[in-house]
């Protein structure tokens, strides 16, 4: 009963694809009027890592330490990538790095979803790429297939064996989501616990979700206000306005900025040419240096 039901729904959400074979958007596939999306202004980002820290606190992420980090076993759902400009004499350190906050892009045609052997990662109706820890068997296939490398595997039993939260630090764990155990994959959920609460409260009050209902942890922490989060299907939301003003479209794999020469648009999405249709828009950096 439940297995057949699950498979039925699983395939329904797996086949949700913003562009069908003819290149026409298939909005019928969306049963929901909510599509969570984000935009990040790289011009505002100073690379301060406050978003990353906020994510650690909100989502019960273990701090793995230097050794494990150097083995690539960091658990930062939100990481700030650094890019250095290379001049004639190698790195131009004095010019400073360019920063790019990178988290799960919640792709509409997510490469990770199609390869999971047990259906532990699938699409939700509000446009999230879910990760169900109970179903996950730890094949790590999804991580291998993720072009952004934003899926993190629990190589250790962090709460108990690694003692990632020695008492009384365990008191600050967020009860709204689990502490993951050894052998499961995890990744950014666009703060599912917060979007859930926002949707719940809006439903009780009988109104649609507004911008003021929900902020992600990274957005809340960003001192520069570089991160905007909201419902893309609501034209009044800040994020929809930003996507609109940058002429970035969820169903396109090359945006206006790159398609036509000489415009002043800045909006793009990372690795769009792979056609995963990510939900995070980045605003290109305009200023030359960080210093």
């Amino acid at each position: 009963m439940s297995v057949s039901n699950l498979l039925e729904n699983w395939s329904k959400f797996r086949h949700t694809h913003p562009v069908d074979d003819k290149g026409i958007p298939d909005w019928e596939a969306y049963p929901s009027d909510i599509k969570w999306a984000m935009s990040i202004d790289l011009d505002a980002c100073t690379g301060c890592n406050a978003c990353s820290v906020a994510c650690y606190a909100e989502n019960n992420l273990p701090v793995v330490g230097k050794d494990k980090y150097s083995h690539g076993q960091a658990m930062h759902w939100m990481r700030v990538e650094r890019y250095w400009d290379e001049g004639d004499n190698g790195f131009q350190a004095e010019q400073g790095a360019r920063f790019l906050p990178m988290m799960c892009q919640q792709c509409e045609a997510a490469p990770c979803e199609t390869v999971c052997p047990v259906g532990a990662t699938n699409h939700t109706e509000d446009g999230l790429n879910s990760q169900i820890y109970n179903r996950c068997i730890g094949s790590r296939y999804c991580s291998a297939n993720c072009p952004y490398k934003v899926r993190y595997f629990n190589w250790y039993n962090y709460p108990e064996q690694e003692n990632a939260w020695p008492a009384p630090l365990n008191q600050q764990l967020n009860p709204d989501l689990t502490v993951r155990t050894k052998g499961v994959m995890e990744k950014c959920t666009f703060c599912k616990q917060r979007t859930y609460t926002a949707r719940n409260n809006a439903k009780t009050e009988g109104r649609p979700v507004q911008d003021s209902d929900v902020q992600t942890a990274c957005q809340e922490a960003c001192p520069a206000g570089a991160i905007t989060f909201g419902n893309l299907h609501n034209p009044e939301s800040q994020v929809a306005k930003q996507w609109q003003s940058q002429q970035v479209d969820l169903i396109k794999d090359i945006q206006e900025k790159d398609e036509k020469e000489g415009n002043r648009l800045r909006g793009y999405r990372v690795l769009e040419e792979l056609r995963p249709y990510p939900s995070v828009m980045y605003l290109e950096r305009v200023r030359e240096s960080a210093v």
Binding site: L6, N122, E125, S130, T178, T189, Q193, Y196
Partner: peptide
């Protein structure tokens, strides 16, 4: 709701 992510956290 019939989708895993609503009830599993």
């Amino acid at each position: 709701p019939n989708d895993c992510f609503t009830c599993h956290k």
